[in-house]
């Protein structure tokens, strides 16, 4: 067949270039984000001394830029959320992957997906209008807008992440491991604890990490329900008092600051911190590969 195809080749080359540059663009965006955070946030280090940044008072109007209350607030809310979400999320994942009958799985999975898709403002609204008054009354608190309220809602937000990653990890444990344990006379329950979960542990840990990452970056929900008081969390009691996270601080204050002011730079500095945390969490998590993705199908032969 004699067909003139050099023309076809030029088009092919152009398209290949375009597609490749779309692939590279992901790197470009990360660099851009990093660059803009640095260029707007780093000046803060020249304007505010490290000593003040490490102070315990955040009161920008009087030029107090102590970050410790915000950092401790984020930590407290996130740790609380993790403590609640890990057992529930992993328990549910085990239930879905190992125990639940087919019909239950078919109801559970879409519902978990719905939870993952609930906008954070909607959860915030429920937290603000229903959860926090209930907590105030039942736990006899001065206000229901506390770090703990935030933890509860953040747990709800990170549970879908934990479930889906942990479930994948459990699914990728070879069937033969389980069969071997069962053949040796272990009950299904023992098999789950002694064989399946240990075999999937790196994936399950990854699930937890990604859940933490999801929680620490969440903004609107915590801003709506934690009461936003920037006080240093120095005791467990503070869990039941208002708190302020790094994310909520940016969201609440960025709208009112003048571009280029010290306050503006410090808010971007907090953004750099959040960026770094998410970088560490996600890169570490991704290093744990529990799912072989390699395409090993040999060419037809």
């Amino acid at each position: 067949m004699k067909i003139f195809i050099s023309q076809l080749f030029d088009k092919e080359r152009l398209i290949t270039r375009l597609i490749a540059s779309a692939g590279y663009s992901a790197i470009l965006f990360v660099l851009l984000i990093f660059y803009f955070l640095i260029s707007e946030g780093l000046p803060a280090l020249g304007e505010v001394s490290l000593h003040s940044l490490l102070g315990t008072r955040w009161y920008p109007i009087e030029e107090y830029y102590g970050l410790l209350p915000l950092i401790s607030g984020s930590l407290m809310v996130t740790l609380g959320a993790t403590a609640i979400a890990m057992p529930i999320g992993i328990g549910t994942a085990v239930f879905i992957a190992e125990v639940a009958p087919r019909w239950a799985r078919e109801i559970l999975k879409p519902l978990v997906e719905v939870l993952g898709g609930l906008p954070s403002v909607v959860l915030g609204l429920i937290g603000f209008l229903i959860l926090s008054p209930a907590l105030r009354v039942n736990l006899n608190l001065a206000t229901g807008l506390t770090a703990f309220t935030g933890s509860l809602l953040l747990a709800a937000i990170s549970i879908p992440t934990i479930i889906s990653v942990a479930e994948d990890a459990l699914d990728s444990v070879p069937r033969s491991y389980r069969d071997a344990a069962l053949a040796l006379g272990a009950t299904e329950w023992q098999t789950i604890w002694r064989v399946t979960l240990p075999a999937a542990r790196s994936g399950v840990l990854t699930a937890g990490m990604l859940g933490v990452g999801r929680a620490i970056g969440e903004t609107m929900t915590v801003m709506m329900v934690t009461g936003n008081a920037p006080v240093l969390a120095n005791s467990l009691r503070m869990l039941f008092m208002p708190a302020r996270t790094m994310t909520a601080t940016i969201a609440a204050e960025m709208g009112e600051v003048a571009r280029g002011s010290v306050h503006y730079h410090v808010l971007f500095l907090i953004g750099i911190g959040l960026f770094m945390i998410s970088l560490v969490v996600n890169v570490t998590a991704s290093a744990v590969v529990f799912r072989q993705r390699k395409r090993s199908e040999r060419i037809l032969s």
Partner: peptide, 19 residues
Amino acid sequence: IRLAIINLAGIPSVVYGLF
């Protein structure tokens, strides 16, 4: 590229706001 995508997926939404 994969690392960048993982990273993009993890960046908190408020940081996207700043960017």
